[in-house]
């Protein structure tokens, strides 16, 4: 056991946070203070995201879509849009594309019928298609 663990108010393992931080090419060493702060703020972030997602729930179950909704609606969470994409069914996707076409939206090349279910098509718009 480390000394740090015994009197800190953290849940997340510092060692793991440190490993993730060091996976960034610009980071060589991580001192105890920045490590503490990044760990702490990550916990605040999780709490905040969960509380906001909770506002979207109807029953008693927090589901993926509630989180995706928060992510898609908040521009400061833009960095998560490809990590937590809004998931839609193939049918919804087709309808979405049809509406886009009707509007004359040429933001991306229209995909062929056969390939439109590939998630790579949808991820660019924050959407992942599920069957």
């Amino acid at each position: 056991m480390s000394v740090a663990k015994s009197e800190k108010d953290l849940h997340l393992p510092l060692s793991r946070v440190k490993t993730i931080m060091k996976s960034s090419p610009d980071v060589d060493a991580v001192g105890p203070e920045p490590l503490y702060l990044v760990t702490k703020v990550t916990e605040m972030f999780v709490t905040d995201l969960a509380k906001r997602a909770y506002k979207n729930i109807k029953g008693n179950m927090l589901e993926y879509k509630h989180i995706a909704e928060v992510v898609q609606e908040d521009d400061t969470l833009d960095f998560l849009r490809e990590i937590v994409p809004r998931k839609i069914t193939v049918r919804e996707y087709k309808e979405l594309m049809a509406r886009k076409a009707a509007r004359g939206d040429r933001s991306d090349e229209s995909s062929e019928e056969s390939s439109e279910a590939e998630s790579s098509d949808g991820s660019s718009s924050g959407v992942e298609i599920i069957e």
Partner: peptide
């Protein structure tokens, strides 16, 4: 409040990416 498996995975992934984002 129950948390679905997918929601748990999503939140854990989001937290991991957040660490890198802040870093």
């Amino acid at each position: 409040v129950a948390i679905s498996k997918e929601a748990r995975t999503g939140l854990a992934k989001a937290a991991s990416v957040f660490v890198l984002y802040v870093t």
